[in-house]
């Protein structure tokens, strides 16, 4: 199931979307999501879907792939849907069971909220699918750089993200190895009740933490040896530059936002 999550995965390619500046993509993604949160009628969502579909087509990624990414989150989506049904107060009663009545407002709210979640996941998926983790961290770091004036650790956060990304495959491999080593000693990770299973994780988690700490220690020393001294005065191999593509992207997004604003006014 873990491998089904498209959120955070990168789909290598050379489309116009791929080539856009990561900063622009980040900004546009945020605008898109915020925009979607203000939509409150079905045609509006159809517009949002059409826009997303267009972007995905340009990027060369299969739309199915994006939909598959929503699947692992279906429980959260259903959960919020049901929650909204129950807890949103409304006037127009659709039907009444005495202890609970379903109102039109609650139903609408539940549907819109679920849709917003779906678009949130799909929108960010498009971002991560078309932007390599390196570009993404670069983009984030540079976008947040002005905040450093207020002591916001933009560089440190980006560095942490890079290191996390770098070590995920290493630690996954290590987990597999330790798990097998403990299984060779008769450990059982698969059977028993919840408590027994949680307990069975100790022989896996302790060595993993020990190893992660050792790696962190080694890495810190290696970074120091390579003159690492924080983000000040640091240059980067890759410079980010806005191009015409980014301008097109910004205009397209502006168009989309204008459309939903107009549409919202027209349909209430």
């Amino acid at each position: 199931m873990l491998k089904d999550i498209t959120l955070g995965q990168y789909f290598p390619g050379d489309s116009a979307i791929h080539r856009m500046d990561p900063r622009m993509k980040l900004i546009l993604t945020i605008i898109y999501i915020v925009g979607v949160f203000f939509i409150s009628n079905l045609p509006g969502y159809l517009l949002a879907l059409a826009f997303l579909y267009l972007v995905v087509r340009i990027s060369g990624i299969k739309f199915d792939y994006l939909l598959k990414g929503v699947k692992p989150l279906r429980f959260i989506i259903i959960f919020t849907f049901v929650l909204n049904l129950f807890f949103v107060q409304g006037e127009t009663v659709l039907f009444d069971l005495g202890f609970w009545r379903l109102t039109k407002e609650a139903l609408e709210n539940a549907i819109y909220f679920a849709l917003r979640l779906v678009f949130l996941v799909m929108g960010t998926s498009v971002l991560t699918l078309t932007t390599s983790p390196v570009q993404l961290t670069d983009g984030l770091e540079r976008l947040m750089r002005p905040l450093q004036k207020f002591h916001f650790p933009a560089h440190e956060l980006a560095m942490m993200m890079t290191i996390a990304l770098r070590f995920i495959p290493t630690l996954l491999e290590e987990t597999d190895k330790i798990q097998k080593a403990q299984m060779a000693r008769g450990a059982d990770f698969e059977s028993g009740n919840l408590i027994a299973r949680a307990k069975a994780m100790i022989p896996l988690l302790v060595p993993l933490f020990v190893s992660a700490f050792r790696r962190a220690n080694d890495l810190a020393m290696a970074m120091e040896a390579r003159c690492y001294r924080g983000g000040d005065h640091r240059t980067r191999l890759r410079e980010l530059k806005y191009t015409k593509l980014d301008l097109f992207g910004a205009l397209a997004m502006a168009g989309f936002i204008a459309l939903i604003v107009v549409e919202g006014k027209l349909l209430g």
């Binding site: 290590e174 190895k177 330790i178 097998k180 080593a181 403990q182 299984m183 060779a184 000693r185 008769g186 450990a187 100790i202 022989p203 302790v206 060595p207 020990v210 190893s211």
Partner: peptide, 28 residues
């Protein structure tokens, strides 16, 4: 089967986890 065939992995010290030497050896 694992009782009959013991497997010592590469860098096996990475699998140690118990508080004491005795407890760790007793795990199997």
């Amino acid at each position: 089967v694992r009782r009959r065939v013991g497997l010592v992995f590469q860098y096996p010290e990475n699998q140690l986890f118990e508080e004491t030497v005795e407890k760790d050896i007793a795990f199997g």
